[in-house]
Every structure is written in C-alpha cells, then in structure tokens.
Design a protein around this nucleic acid. Structure first.
Lengths: 338, 338
DNA sequence: GTGAAAGCGCTAACAC
DNA sequence: GTGTTAGCGCTTTCAC
C-alpha cells in the first residue's frame, strides 16, 4: 500500500492537519516544519489520494464526456478541445462511448453522476428524449453537442447551418454554376439539421440561382452512402446538366467523388463538389475538398469552457452558442464553363 | 445536495448497512425490508456515491489512458478497443493527451496514480526513459503501446514488424517488381521500429529480389513528409527504374501518392505504392491503399484485457504480446509490366 | 502556528 | 436478518 497522510505525519513528527496544510498551502506553516514535512513526503514518495480528497471537498475535477464514437474524426477533435481546455483548469476527462444507443447514453449519464463528475458533455448523433429528465434531476452543468440534430432544451455549441449552406451555395453560384444539386440525408425528424442545410441551399438558389432546385436524398451520413447516390447524380448530369453538387456532409462528398472517379468523371473539371464539416480527410483527399469548416476543436473547447464557468459561478450568457464557420475553398470546385 | 445512504435508511426506517446490503446484494435481506429500501431509493432518486465507495473498497474501476493525440485515427481505434473491453468489466477510462511531451507523460502517470486508477495504458510515439522509474514505484498494472519504438521494459502489444515488412516486400516481388524502393523514417535511435521494417524489406530483397536495395529517407511520419520524398522517388524512377515503393507508414504512402498525382504519375499504373498500418484513410483514398493492417482496435482491447487479468490476479503469460497482421491488397499495387 | 476531532458517504466486520 | 461501529484518507472547523 502506498503512503498516506498519516505516514507522512508520523515520519515528520507532526499532525496530519499540518501535513494537509503544507500540501494544500492552505494555511501558514512555519518554514521549519514545512521542510520536515516536505522531506517526509519526498522520502515516502507520498501522493495525496484524490478520491479521499474528493469525498470531503466535493470536487472531483472530473468531466464526463459521452461520445457516439471516438473513431469519428470530428468527435476526436471535439474531445481534444474539451481535454485541452479542461486540463488548463485541472479537469480530467472520463470518456464513455455510446455507439449511438439511446439507453447507453442514458445509463452513462447515471454512471457519471455516481462517479461524481462535475459536468457532462454529450456528443451525440441521435435524438434522445430521455436525456431531458436524466439531466434535469441530476442538475449538474451539461452541454449537448450534436451536429445532426437541432437541440433546444440544452446549452449547445454549433455553427449556423442555414447561413453556412446559404453561403456555400452562393459560392457555387458565383463560380458560374447554373444547375446545382443538393445532396442531403433523408430524415423525417423536424429537428434534423438537414432541413436547415436544405433551406439555406434553397434560399440561395431562389435568390441568385439561374437553375432549379435539384434535391438528392442520401440514405445516411457515410462515405458508402455518398457513393450510392452517385448513380442519381449521373442521371441529373444528363437530364439537368448539373455541374455542381453541394453535399450536406464531407463523407457524402467523398463517397460521391469516389463514385465519379470510378466512373471516369473528373472532379472538378467535369463537375464541382462541395462538402460540409471539414473533417480530417477533406484536406488530404485528392482533389482536396472545398467545404464548410465546422470548428470542431473549438466547439469542444467552448463547451467545456462554459461548464467550467458555470462551476465557478460565473455568469453565463447565452445557452445556444453559435461559432463562426468558414468556407474553405479547395480543389474540388472550379468555375463553370458554358 | 443529492441523497445519501443515510437519507435512504431514514426514509426506509432501516439502518444504513441494510441499505448497503440491498444496493450491493452482498448479504441476504428479507424481501419485505428490501422492498421498503428499494422504494426509498426510488423516491429519493438515490445514486450511490462511487467516490465514497472507492475510498473504502480501494477499487476505483478507473483505467488511465495516456495518449499522444486522440486525433490520430490509430490512437482513436486503440482507445475504442480499450474502452469497449473495459466497459465489459465496468471499467471507465480516464483520458489524458500528452501531445508527445515527455514531461507531460510523466506528470500524467503521477496524476493518474493520485486519482487511484487501477491500471495505466500509455499510447506513445516517443521514447521516454523516465517512465520506468515512475511506473516501477507506482507498481500498478501497466501496458505500453508504441508503434514507433520497440519497448523492452514493459508489457506491450504489437505486430511483428520485421515479418510484416518482409511479407509485404515479398508480395511486391511476387507481383513482378524488380526495383523496389523502401521509404522509412530517419531515426538514430536503435529502438526505432523503422529499423525492423527496413530489415524485413532488406531480407526479402536479398532472398528473392532481382534488384538492389533502394533506401529512401523521410524526415517524419506525416502525409506532408510523405509528399516531400516524392522528389526523391521521381529521381529513383528515372535512375533505377523503380516500379514499386514500400512505405513504412500509411501517411507517407498517401503523401507520396498525392505528390505523384500532382505530378501526373499514375498509381498503380506507373508505380505501385504500399503503406503500413491501415489507418482509416487508407481504404477511403483513391486508389485504395495496399497496406499492412495493424489491428489497432485489438491492440487496445488486448492491452486492457491484460490489465484486467492482472487486477483479478489471473496468471498472465507473456509480456510482449504479438498480434497477427494482415497484408491488405487493394488498388495501389499492380503487377509489374516489363 | 499547530493539534485534536468531526465528518465526507460508504463498506465490512462484529454483535445480536 | 438486522443494527452498531470502525475506518477508508483526507479537509476543515475549533481550540489552544
């Protein structure tokens, strides 16, 4: 067993309160005694037991982070932001992966409560009605990060998806494209961010576009499903002379580009493609993907910053935080030729 | 403040030990009393305080995981494996990112000790001599995951890099390639895995190759540095008629392919390229990368499995665990034409 | 400036 | 079966 405060006290010939005072620097201790204590600590290799400390101080310095899947690069970036900022305030991260299961998310919230975390950040990709009750009666600081669904009941951090889509579509229009398709993910839920993205696209087409709205529906958010819609796009190229595609997710764009590559259609020479998110592969892929940069790292950083503020009792302003996005112009788009 | 065991006991009209017994199912309790307790728990929304529990049982159900950077996809995969297996045994993950700094790694080991973790897994990309002392006097189960350096002093999980490189080079030879270059990372450290990879390559060339060894040195492990060595490869294509390149990391292969793409050299038609690792992008990239699959998820899973075994006092066999690798044949390689 | 003692929320003897 | 009590390792009054 490792040394306790008692051992240190005994060895230094002082009381445990004195030892506590020197390790916490909480009250003045004569330098003479202090040295003895420090020497004893050194000799025993004493390390304060944070668990015992937490039990009395009620401060665990733990933030629970529930993620859908840390294997998604955007999730990893958010966690990096959370971790790095948390670290600045001595907070540690307790990581839980739900793999998109509602009940697992709920169980983790309970678990984290029992582990006495001081705050919870949920990075989710689903709608989970149960969260509300769980969080409300646990009443610890909470931030909900969800780039797929619009959250109303909780503090969130996101970009303005409507504006972003609007701007991106306008960029495509400014490049001279007339027939621009919009690929988004089929979703019956009103809170789906897909609706916002589509609305932004529609507004731009309506205001500045020369062609009609061309809506394409993907069956999911993955590269594979992006590949799948390739066939539809091919059809629209023929029928409507589509020369640019706005995809609501980088993954879809990459899948689509792969399909086009496999079918000998060149991007951007034959068709321009844009993504959404600026995930890691977007800038590695050839052609490099023109996309909307969601500041994932910052989103994580801001989320935990908010929690820490709340923990410190500082005043917190708005609960739905919008971060600036960026249209990142890369090789997958080109001026239209007519 | 949330309810404690005392509150439950009072409400149920029993002693706290009885409550403890029902929540832990540790000793028989009459079903009558049990129901009362359960009702009280329900009414108060009581959740046991794991911190208090840990203090007495000495079991924190916490495993500390120190990573270089969770943003690397292979690291994320390892963490997934760790987390998922850990979860099966009710273990939680405390995540710390060192960003490759030696002192940070060391500090985290101390911190995790103070937080009473029951085991530590270090996913590192550097050599850190200080680790030894830290771990030895903390004497908690520890596994060291490092795919860049060969670790001797600690339990590890890896693949046999010599064999893998040997096999991959032989695969290239079997495709009919005569002049095969080997790209590895410059490294003066004897423990660098690069040496093993190069040795495997050399052995294959020596035994079965028709051409000479052609060694190319990259300045680092990144895509950018893979791009950088493109110029050297170009030269070797001219001078030695190189038709295949074995890269010691997927990132280098991808950077190289990007360079070749930008210089209108086709992969695999003009030159075959192989990677190492099978990171996420490898299968998304076009052409898809032929590479050596390191089972990152499994490496994490096996690492924590070992720790849990040790914690349970089960016999643990070897300390340097080698997992099987796989040569994944994809589009970036083709038969040589002469 | 220092020590004694209470108590954080819980488990685990130990009695009955 | 159930209650009482000691104590896990620490912080924090409260005396002196």
């Amino acid at each position: 067993m490792s040394a306790t405060i008692k051992d240190v006290a005994k060895l230094a010939g002082v009381s445990i309160s004195t030892v506590s005072r020197v390790i916490n620097d909480s009250k003045p201790v004569s330098s003479e005694v202090k040295e003895k204590v420090l020497a004893a600590i050194e000799e025993l290799g004493y390390k304060p037991n944070e668990v015992a400390r937490t039990l009395v101080t009620k401060k665990s310095y733990l933030i629970g982070v529930i993620v859908s899947d840390i294997g998604n690069s955007y999730v990893a970036q958010m966690v990096r932001g959370i971790e790095e900022v948390g670290r600045m305030y001595n907070y540690d991260i307790l990581l839980c992966s739900s793999y998109g299961d509602k009940n697992t998310e709920l169980r983790f919230i309970q678990l984290l409560n029992r582990k006495q975390v001081e705050g919870i950040i949920l990075i989710s990709e689903i709608m989970n009605e149960g969260i509300k009750e769980q969080i409300e009666n646990s009443k610890i600081p909470f931030v909900y990060l969800n780039r797929y669904y619009h959250i109303n009941d909780f503090p969130t951090v996101s970009i303005d998806d409507f504006d972003a889509s609007y701007e991106m579509t306008n960029y495509l229009i400014s490049l001279g494209h007339k027939n621009i398709a919009c690929v988004s993910v089929k979703n019956e839920n009103d809170c789906s961010v897909e609706n916002l993205k589509m609305a932004g696209y529609k507004k731009a087409i309506e205001e500045f576009g020369e062609g009609d709205e061309i809506l394409v529906c993907a069956n999911g958010y993955t590269i594979e499903e992006g590949y799948e819609i390739g066939r539809d796009i091919l059809k629209f190229i023929d029928e409507y002379d589509v020369s640019a595609v706005f995809c609501s997710h980088d993954e879809l764009a990459i899948g689509l580009i792969n399909f086009l590559y496999d079918n000998n259609i060149r991007v951007p020479q034959d068709i321009s493609v844009t993504g959404y998110g600026d995930i890691k592969i977007a800038s590695v892929f050839r052609p490099k993907l023109t996309t909307i940069k969601e500041p994932h790292y910052d989103m994580g950083a801001v989320a935990i910053r908010r929690i820490i503020k709340e923990l410190k009792g500082e005043k917190i302003d708005k609960t739905q935080i919008r971060l600036p996005f960026q249209i990142v112009k890369r090789g997958s788009c080109e001026k239209a030729e007519y």
